[in-house]
Design a protein around this nucleic acid. Structure first.
Length: 632
DNA sequence: GTAGGGTTAG
């Protein structure tokens, strides 16, 4: 490493030694003065010229002056000039002060030239905590967490004590709880846990690793905080599917007198998206108007409107955006498909070509998702086969997953299996679950048994797999096998997630859970539901009894379907919302075939628009039809 | 004097 720096110096040296015109001490002092003046004026070109003359005299200015000049290089992103300064400082075996080397290392880090930074670091005769922290921070930012931790061990070996800067940098590099616990102990031992940066890093890393309780306890122990720590905790919960906690914390933040900025509002939108809270999301939109050209916020807004099933609003925000990036396009493509407009999604993707944006692998995943959601087999094959050639993107698991779904749902299970076997990466639980889903649609029990075995091997805790398999058996009246599955689930302590639907009425969220009568108006709701069912039967409604999970007969069988949570939420909506208002429901699981028919008929009978977001898509019911076509 | 924090698609 040292050799390469020396090589740079030799290359640079001889040219400059020719320009020697100053000789007396006064001249030298004047030259140094001139240099300092130019550096503080940030006049980079002239300062560099004078630097040449200094070098030919073997003169060096003071460290603060060079530090100014380097700042100037950084603000202009002038890598070449930064290199010239570095060579000058090491010219002729000169050793710059430790402080200045730290500044240089930092410069290389900011230029993303980690090797150059590390080279200077390696040849330092002495290093202080700042030298170490600069390198650790650099590796943390590049997600080279192992390297960052190695440097911590080394610095301790050199008896340099880490400080709050070191720890806050290091925490960002953690990707396992072991490292976090170890660092957390170090932080407490050194008495550094009250530092606000350390705390926000701890909160972020706990949230990132799916330990929101730990994140919250670090947050709650804090005596003083600032807006960014609030953003950390609100964002942390929003990213971990704990949107309700995130919104509660947002309320607390406002009560504490903090103003919501872009980052806060983005997380709040994400939380609204997670809970499908359109009304609240729209309220947030009002506060966002002053940041109307903030790209990240607008992206979050588009996503919120799409996932809350309000496509017109999403389209409006999208079309008014002055700047769009790959996330904007991917979000809108995905959002259209999510709401049943796959053809429009593909058209939009075609128009990405005339924009400046280059699609990335996520964009292609969303395009294939659009194809699979509408059964667009030919389009799917076209995009899948051409992605490498047209966009230079190699297919990964998610791309294969969409294709397997597309083929399987289109009845081409053999082709789906063939593609699964051809995958360059190992299929994971999600891949096999996708195939299993297709087996349910196609009623292929043999393949379903094989696929579910694979899913259970890879993800034994997932209740959904057992449920799908039990559904397949139930459809074929194989009640012994159904019973066997349920026994197996009981024995392994795996619990089925109960079906739950939520509806927002008058700024309050009402939850309806299957088998749970705790909603205060549940008796009226059920009574009204029964009346509605009778009226629907009058116009031809027949319960699709094969969606029942247990071996029940006749009346009982119909009853358990009758009380699916989305039906209860829908009836509650009919009872409480004004007739012109769209009824919007979010459900945690997929909507079942019976409820799907039920909603279509209700939309016609009651002349209502109904939007139900289930675990993978939005269904818009209007005038007896659903936006998802046959691909529910 | 030089080193550390929050936000968007999957």
């Amino acid at each position: 490493m040292v050799e390469s720096v020396t090589a740079k110096l030799i290359l640079f040296g001889p040219v400059l030694t020719l320009r020697c015109s100053y000789s007396s001490t006064t001249d030298q002092a004047l030259l140094l003065n001139e240099f300092t003046r130019l550096c503080y004026q940030r006049d980079l070109p002239r300062a560099l010229k004078v630097m040449d003359s200094l070098q030919s005299h073997g003169l060096w200015a003071d460290s603060a002056t060079y530090s100014e000049l380097i700042k100037c290089c950084l603000s202009h992103r002038s890598v070449h000039e930064g290199n010239l300064i570095c060579r000058h400082l090491y010219y002729n075996g000169h050793q710059p002060m430790m402080f200045l080397v730290n500044v240089l290392i930092n410069m290389y880090v900011k230029f993303n030239l980690l090797n150059d930074a590390h080279q200077l670091f390696d040849q330092m005769p002495e290093r202080n905590v700042i030298s170490w922290t600069t390198m650790i921070s650099a590796y943390s930012k590049c997600k080279l967490h192992q390297k960052a931790l190695e440097l911590l061990v080394l610095m301790l070996r050199y008896s340099v004590r880490p400080n709050v800067y070191t720890y806050s940098s290091l925490l960002r590099a953690c990707n396992g709880m072991f490292d976090v616990r170890m660092l957390h102990c170090g932080i407490i031992k050194e008495g550094l846990e009250s530092d606000v940066y350390v705390r926000s890093a701890l909160i972020d890393v706990f949230a990132k690793l799916g330990e929101p309780e730990d994140a919250l306890s670090v947050f709650d122990e804090m005596v003083t905080g600032d807006a960014i720590v609030w953003n950390s905790i609100i964002g942390g919960f929003a990213q971990n599917s704990k949107s309700d906690v995130s919104l509660e914390l947002f309320k607390r933040m406002k009560r504490a007198g903090f103003i919501a900025e872009q980052a806060t509002l983005t997380s709040v939108l994400r939380a609204c998206t997670g809970l499908a809270l359109l009304e609240l999301g729209m309220q947030a939109h009002v506060h966002i108007v002053k940041y109307d050209q903030d790209l990240i916020l607008n992206n979050a807004l588009v996503d919120m409107y799409c996932k809350c099933g309000s496509l017109d609003d999403a389209r409006r925000v999208f079309s008014q955006m002055k700047e769009r990036d790959v996330i904007t396009w991917s979000t809108m493509i995905s959002g259209l498909a999510h709401n049943g407009y796959s053809q429009e999604a593909l058209k939009l993707f075609e128009s990405v070509k005339s924009s400046e944006t280059k699609p990335n692998y996520v964009t292609i995943v969303r395009v294939l998702f659009a194809c699979s959601h509408a059964g667009l087999l030919e389009d799917g094959w076209y995009y899948f086969r051409s992605m490498k050639k047209l966009y230079g993107i190699d297919p990964v698991r998610e791309h294969y997953g969409c294709m397997i779904d597309l083929l399987g749902k289109a009845g081409k299970l053999d082709d789906a299996v063939k593609l699964l076997n051809e995958m360059e990466c190992e299929p994971d639980a999600v891949t096999w679950r996708t195939l299993l889903g297709s087996c349910r649609v196609q009623g292929n029990m043999v393949l379903a048994e094989y696929a579910s075995k694979k899913v259970i091997e890879l993800d034994p805790e997932d209740a959904g797999t057992y449920i799908v398999l039990s559904n397949i058996y139930a459809n074929s009246q194989k009640w012994d096998s159904v019973e066997e599955i349920w026994t197996r689930m009981r024995d392994s302590g795996i619990k089925k997630e109960p079906g739950c639907s939520w509806i927002e009425v008058n700024k309050k969220i009402h939850a309806f859970i299957i088998g749970d009568d705790s909603h205060p108006q549940i008796i009226q709701v059920k009574k009204k539901l029964n009346q509605l069912i009778h009226r629907l039967i009058g116009i031809g409604y027949v319960s699709k009894t094969n969606f029942v999970l247990q071996d029940l007969e006749g009346e009982q069988m119909e009853d358990s379907l009758r009380h699916h949570s989305e039906k209860l939420a829908l009836v509650f909506g009919l009872m409480t919302l004004p007739s012109e208002k769209v009824i919007r429901i979010r459900k945690n699981l997929r909507i079942c075939g019976d409820c799907h028919v039920f909603c279509m008929l209700v939309s016609k009978l009651e002349n209502r628009s109904i939007v139900i977001r289930d675990s993978i898509r939005c269904h818009h019911f209007q005038d007896g039809k659903s936006s998802c076509g046959d691909y529910g």
